[in-house]
Design a protein around this nucleic acid. Structure first.
Lengths: 106, 106
DNA sequence: TTCGTTTACTTCTAAATAATAGAAGAATAA
DNA sequence: TTATTCTTCTATTATTTAGAAGTAAACGAA
């Protein structure tokens, strides 16, 4: 089995979670919010390219929008192969994290 | 928050799972079995060193054993700081993997 | 009883791969 | 022109990966 790198996994799952609204900026926002830390632009786009090269995501150019800065966006979605790999990874995650204690509630 | 790299996370969690029996060889075996793939020696020991440098694991030299190849082993265990970080990471994992579908049963 | 061999384990390091930062570029409207 | 939103590009640093070399024990043949 081929595992993904830390960033590839985070980006790929974010695309899945964002459904039809996954493009560079929203992916970056989503991951920032989730982790509460700063992520550079490159920290998103570089692994994104690699996911595409590996056939785990597909991409299409969105329409331009009639508003300021309304440049067309490059949307991403997870391919069937991507979903399959995520399922395999989830199985590993479930085992490795099994029994790990939750944070104590206040 | 500081996330761990892919290998650091896998090794740190393996040490936690192996309880008192975590040393280079058993960690490697555990991860191999879990993932079903080959891992080089360095793929374990290098991130292990880094976890120690970061204070996420502590280590002690085990006793020699009265059997062939019974050289003393370098055991590892997760520090309180390590457990705390894993708990934070688990919270991120729980959100990012939320709702992701299980593999269909045969 | 010693010395070469076997076994179990760790240390080290070079090369390949991935993460990170952010400047520059492109496409839109104001 | 300038402002806004978004992407492309690329250099630097960090991490992963492979496996040769090294260490420490017991075994076994002579």
């Amino acid at each position: 089995m081929k595992l993904l790198s830390r960033q590839e996994e985070l980006v790929l799952l974010s695309i899945w979670q964002l459904k039809g609204n996954a493009y560079g900026v929203t992916i970056r926002e989503y991951i920032s919010e989730l982790t509460g830390k700063y992520w550079s632009i490159g920290a998103i786009y570089v692994p994104l390219d690699r996911l595409w090269e590996k056939g785990l995501v597909e991409t299409y150019q969105g329409p331009t929008e009639k508003k300021r800065g309304g440049r067309s966006k490059r949307y991403y979605q997870v391919t069937a192969e991507g979903v399959k790999l995520l399922q395999e990874i989830k199985q590993v995650q479930d085992v490795i994290w099994k029994d790990f204690p939750r944070v104590a509630e206040e």
